[in-house]
């Protein structure tokens, strides 16, 4: 199992479109993937769960991954959150 903390840097936070992007990335992997904020942990493959975190700009989230492809999953999520910043314009 691996875990990593992220700060949400894009201006609008994880609203609908970014949540959709995260869910789509997460569902590509076999591993169980969770995302938590302020102690609330939800399934990162559920868009409702991700939206309910209300992870706005500047908030801190923890991604926890458990499974055979956990490393590549984390890499893909890092790419989306940190590098691409949800492709926000």
């Amino acid at each position: 199992m691996i875990e990593k903390k992220f700060r949400i840097k894009n201006k609008l936070g994880i609203h609908a479109r970014p949540a959709g992007q995260l869910v789509k990335v997460a569902t590509r992997f076999k591993s169980a993937i969770y995302i938590s904020r302020n102690g609330n942990e939800v399934n990162a493959k559920s868009i409702m769960g991700v939206l309910m975190l209300e992870a706005g700009h500047g908030s801190e989230v923890i991604i926890r991954i458990n499974g055979e492809d956990e490393f590549s999953a984390l890499e893909a999520i890092e790419e989306l959150i940190d590098k691409r910043q949800f492709d926000e314009e």
Partner: peptide
């Protein structure tokens, strides 16, 4: 068009 993909994800969500 991406918003409609989000709507589809919502409909497919186990929580819904």
């Amino acid at each position: 068009a991406e918003i409609f993909e989000v709507h589809i994800l919502i409909l497919d969500d186990p929580e819904i």
